[in-house]
């Protein structure tokens, strides 16, 4: 994954590292686990695959509220939020995240996700504004390729 020109309209004053500031930067992805569920295998595997593919990955850790996730996303100036949900709460959490992003004026952050999500629910969530979703049998390469294509 080559470095990518910053897409964020607000972004990039403080890259933290100094050096070749602002002209180019890696795509920043927040991998997040909303709610009380502890199934973090998928989130961690995806986080690591994205990091290995050259993305900058921030992982929230477990038991995050939607408010905490959006606050982190805004504070870390990410390009993408990836939610991992295996608790059946997808139809509640995704809309809430989208709503909070609107409230924060941060709709430029793309919301994607994966987990035990049925095809019908995927269609509904995409209609609400979730950009892409993957089921439990998906490969990390599918996700990496999709992100590379989107941010090419």
């Amino acid at each position: 994954m080559p470095p990518h020109p910053a897409l964020s309209p607000t972004g990039g004053e403080d890259e933290g590292e100094g050096g070749d500031n602002m002209t180019e930067r890696k795509i920043r992805i927040l991998v997040a686990k909303p709610g009380l569920d502890g199934h973090d295998r998928g989130a961690k595997v995806v986080a690591r695959a994205l990091r290995d593919a050259g993305f900058e990955v921030i992982y929230t850790g477990l038991h995050q509220t939607a408010e905490q996730i959006v606050a982190t996303a805004v504070q870390e100036d990410v390009d993408v939020i990836g939610l991992s949900i295996l608790s059946g709460t997808q139809m509640i959490v995704f809309p809430r995240i989208l709503e909070l992003l609107r409230e924060h004026g941060a709709t430029h952050i793309a919301v994607i996700g994966g987990g035990t999500i049925l095809p019908k629910e995927m269609r509904e969530l995409k209609a609400m504004g979730v950009v892409e979703l993957w089921g439990v049998d998906s490969s990390t390469q599918e996700i990496v390729s999709w992100l590379q294509a989107r941010f090419r």
């Binding site: 709610g35 009380l36 569920d37 038991h63 509220t65 608790s87 059946g88 709460t89 509640i92 959490v93």
Partner: peptide, 22 residues
Amino acid sequence: DMPTLMGYDSDDPRASGEVGRE
């Protein structure tokens, strides 16, 4: 369910959406 496992009552805001689900 997750709230019971994690020690939240069903009327706790943290339990919202997860009561009786898993």
